[in-house]
Design a protein around this nucleic acid. Structure first.
Lengths: 155, 155
DNA sequence: TAAGTTATGAACAAAGTGGGAAAAAGTGGG
DNA sequence: CCCACTTTTTCCCACTTTGTTCATAACTTA
């Protein structure tokens, strides 16, 4: 599995292209060849970028947990798969983000690409500052998620 | 697991590079090859430097305890992974600290690298002086954290 | 003092940024 | 339904900035 590390601020040029940081390119190795999938995030006003390989993995997970003949599931699947686009990098490591997705994420000229294990989040930079800094909730969340029962060897 | 011991003051050169103390290099052995991950500390104005191996270990723990399709978990993951960067040492044992991280830690020309078992803390030297000198709280904290219930075999 | 290590600066390579022009896709009128 | 026209996308090339490597000088340490 590809794991992306780091967050980078890049600005869109006049044509709405954004250049993909070299660090991410190195981290994705040959997988850049297969392209990426861009998608609206389920919860927040941002976009998620999956390498094709990871997208397929996530797909399997979703499919294994849903039944398309169930009406509610069908609605969920429709929502889940709406707002996706396949993108690829040009010779200068840039990609063109479709307009409707840019609008969804409120992206105009400066964006943050934030690596998060298998995927990359894409935020309008002003919004990212707000959501990414640890607030009072964080300590509580951390304790709830990680606290309590860490095994001895994991410390 | 790699254990770092000691704290060292180094100054940045004109390009913002800092030379990694030889002692730490010895302590990290072959792990230097794999590079390091730099990260903002969640609560203090400093940076944390993990050998890749240690970073992956932490990652595994986090991933195994979170589900990115859970809204609260997703927020936690975002905060946890924000402000990271992958760095490596050049042929002269120097590393380039990304600007945004330097700004975060208030680093301009002199920093302290402080070993702390699996990781290294990086502080602007003027700030480190303030936090590292034992104040009155320290004894009390020590007692509160360590004093109570240490198991027999840990003494 | 010699060998190794650390610091500094210059030269080079790579990444980021911007724009021109060709190709493709979309739009409207006859 | 086809043709001209506009808009969007893609492919190049050039320039600026940033990061990396290399060479040399200064310093430690045995």
């Amino acid at each position: 599995m590809i794991t992306f590390i780091g967050d980078y601020t890049v600005r869109l040029d006049s044509k709405g292209r954004l250049s993909f940081p070299a660090a991410f390119k190195k981290q994705s190795r040959e997988a850049v060849q297969d392209g990426f999938v861009l998608k609206r995030d389920l919860f927040e006003n941002c976009l998620i970028m999956y390498p094709m390989e990871e997208w397929e993995r996530q797909n399997k997970i979703i499919r294994s947990r849903t039944n398309p003949y169930n009406k509610e599931h069908a609605r969920f699947l429709r929502m889940f798969f709406s707002g996706t686009a396949e993108v690829s990098l040009d010779a200068n490591n840039r990609m063109l983000v479709p307009k409707r997705l840019m609008e969804y994420a409120g992206i105009s000229d400066e964006v943050v690409l934030a690596g998060q294990s298998g995927k990359i989040e894409i935020w309008a930079s002003d919004q990212y500052g707000r959501v990414s800094t640890a607030d009072d909730d964080f300590a509580a969340m951390a304790e709830k998620i990680l606290g309590g029962s860490i095994d001895e060897q994991d410390r």
